[in-house]
Structures are given as C-alpha cells and as structure tokens.
Simulated scan of single mutants.
Amino acid sequence: MFIILLQQMLTMLSLIIFGFILIKRKVLDADGTKQISTLLSMYVMPASMIASFNDAFDFDRLKLFGWAIIAALLTITSRILLNHFVFDKEDRTAKYGVTFPNSGFFGIPIVTALIGIQGIFFMSAYIMCNNILQWTYGRALISGDRSSMSIRKVFSNPGMIGATIGLILYIIPLPLPAFMWKAVDSIAALNTSLAMIIIGSFLANSDLKAIFTNRTSYKASLMRLVITPILAIIIIKLLPINNSEVELVMTIASVAPAAANTAILGRVFGGNYEYGARIVVLSSLFSILTIPFMLQFATFIYAL
C-alpha cells in the first residue's frame, strides 16, 4: 500500500507542478482557474460520487455507509472541540482549516488509487457530513456571525446533491443505460488532474516567502496533518466498524490537507483570505509527505 500511495502522491505532486507552470507561463489566468474550479466542484466531484454508487444493492454495505456517516461526524466534531483548546478565539481561519479537510479534491484520487472507484461510496458519506458542517458551523465560524448559517446551502451544494442522487440510484432498482454510466465515469476521471491543477494555481498565485515564514500556518498544518488525524484514527479504531475498507476511506478523508474553502469562504464571508490560502497551500505541500506515513500508522493501529 505504501508504494502505491507514494506513487499516487508523486503523481499528484507532478500535476500540482503542472498547474503551477500553467499559471506562470500565463496559459491559465484567474478566469480560467475560476472556470476549472467551478467545473470541478459543480460537476466532476459530484460525478465521482454518483459513479461510486454504480453497484448492486447490498443492505450490509448500506449499513456500513451508516457507520461511515457516524465516523465522519465524530471525527469532525472532535476537531471542533480540540480547536477550542489549541487556537485563540479570534483565530477562526485556522480553526476552519484544521476542522475541514480537502476530502474531495485530495481524498477521492487517493481512494481511487488504493481501493478503486467503489471506495468513493464511503467517501461520499464523509463528504456529505463535511458539507453539512461547512455550510452551518463553518460558515458561522469564518464570518463570526452565527446568524449567517445557511440551511439552504446544506442541501443545495454539489457534494450533497451528488451523494443524494447516487444513494437514490443505489437503493431504488432503476437501471440506467451502460453508456450513461460510462459518461459519468469519464467525467469522474477528470477529478485528480483538475483538482491538482487548482492546487498548483493556488501555489503560483501565493507569496511563497509569506507561506514559509508564517509560524501560525505551520501550527495549523501540524494540527491538520498530524494531530487531528491521530485523534481520528483512535476514534475510528474504537468504533465497531469491523471493515477495513471503511476504516481506510475514513482515515484518508481525515489525513487530507485543509479544504480549499478555508481561503474561498474567507474571501466571501469576510475572513482572512490570504491567511487561509497560506494554510491551504502549506498543508497541501506537506501532505505529500505526511499522508503515506499517517496511513501506514493507521494500518498498524487497526491491525492491533
């Protein structure tokens, strides 16, 4: 697993560098990256989630999906509690970045490499919970205004819609033509390349000196990539899941770098956008090194 994962991380790093070069050579500009981001978040990632439900209905697998939801909620809320003791009350951007991992952009490519497209079935459970809390607690955290929570956004965001459509197709025996599933799979295959190009564009548009000289960004990255994943691994180990695939997928979701929304929502809702972007870029770069080791550690703990 370590060799496969290391190769996947190096592939993702190469794509990040490719995105960086595209920006620096002005092949892509701000409008282009915005369009790619929209395509990725609105269509490609939901397509990946829908494609993962293309399987015969299995009630035991559906029960495991329920355990994945429980694991997701417990691991995310544990970070919310831990952040209150680690960060100052006003350091809302760091709290957001530590609480919400980039489980879609980073998690889906890793799950696909290690398990296959069927592994995204359980990642969808995590993304659903992540989206619900991002658009309620997360939005209030970034804006500093609890009244800004948006229930409508919870049910109308692309991740929630993709998971819901996939779940309905899984539960209800509604066979779709093979060419439609093949089209969805083809769209889903774009996820890794587009996601890493966007991370590369973040890097190219950032002040590298500011990224690597800001101590609080290192603190947030350490929490996001090492401390909270260890906490998540302990929680997952204590749950009676008894399924290595679910445990691995929930772990992958928990070891991913800070969500891109750490920067994006900061700009939209009045948070510290530049600080958020530094956390996203720094944690994304370091995750290339930390993710293989954290997953090896998790495999050792789950085997005990």
Rank of each mutant, 00 (worst) to 15 (best):
Q134D: 14
V249Y: 01
K26R: 15
V184F: 07
I108H: 00
M123I: 04
A51F: 03
T216W: 02
G116R: 06
A298P: 06
I70C: 11
R79Y: 13
K24F: 01
I120N: 11
A277C: 01
I50H: 05
I198E: 05
R267F: 10
K24S: 12
L40P: 08
F155T: 06
A68G: 05
A94T: 07
I161D: 10
A189I: 09
L10V: 14
P175A: 02
I171W: 12
G162C: 05
A178G: 11
S287D: 12
V268R: 12
I227P: 01
G97V: 03
D207R: 06
S37N: 12
S143Q: 09
N214A: 06
G116V: 14
K34Y: 07
R215G: 11
S124P: 06
S284N: 04
V184L: 13
N131K: 12
G162T: 03
L73H: 04
L208K: 10
T33Y: 10
P173E: 04
K34D: 09
F100T: 02
I199S: 05
I165P: 03
Y275C: 04
V154K: 09
L82F: 12
F57Y: 14
G270L: 02
I211Q: 02
S193L: 04
Q8C: 15
F106D: 06
I235V: 14
G32T: 01
L133P: 08
G107P: 11
A256H: 11
K63S: 14
G97C: 13
A204N: 00
K95V: 10
T290I: 04
F87P: 12
N205L: 15
V98E: 03
I50G: 00
K237W: 12
F87Y: 15
I291T: 08
A220W: 11
L10W: 11
T262F: 10
L5R: 13
I197Y: 05
F18I: 09
I234N: 02
N242R: 09
V27G: 03
F286R: 02
N272I: 01
L190P: 01
T75W: 08
I4H: 14
A232W: 07
Q7T: 04
T262N: 07
L81W: 07
L10R: 13
L82C: 15
Y43Q: 01
A260R: 04
I234V: 14
F2C: 01
I165D: 02
A51V: 00
R278S: 13
P240Q: 00
N205V: 00
F2S: 03
L82E: 01
T136M: 13
T11H: 11
I117T: 11
A232P: 07
F105Y: 15
I132H: 07
R139L: 08
G271Q: 02
M45K: 10
R146S: 07
Y218D: 00
F286H: 07
L13D: 10
V246A: 10
N102V: 03
R224P: 04
F286V: 05
I187L: 15
T228Y: 05
F59L: 05
M1Q: 11
I227V: 12
I120A: 06
I288S: 09
I198L: 12
P240F: 01
L22P: 00
M128P: 03
L285K: 04
D60F: 04
T213Q: 12
S156I: 08
W67D: 00
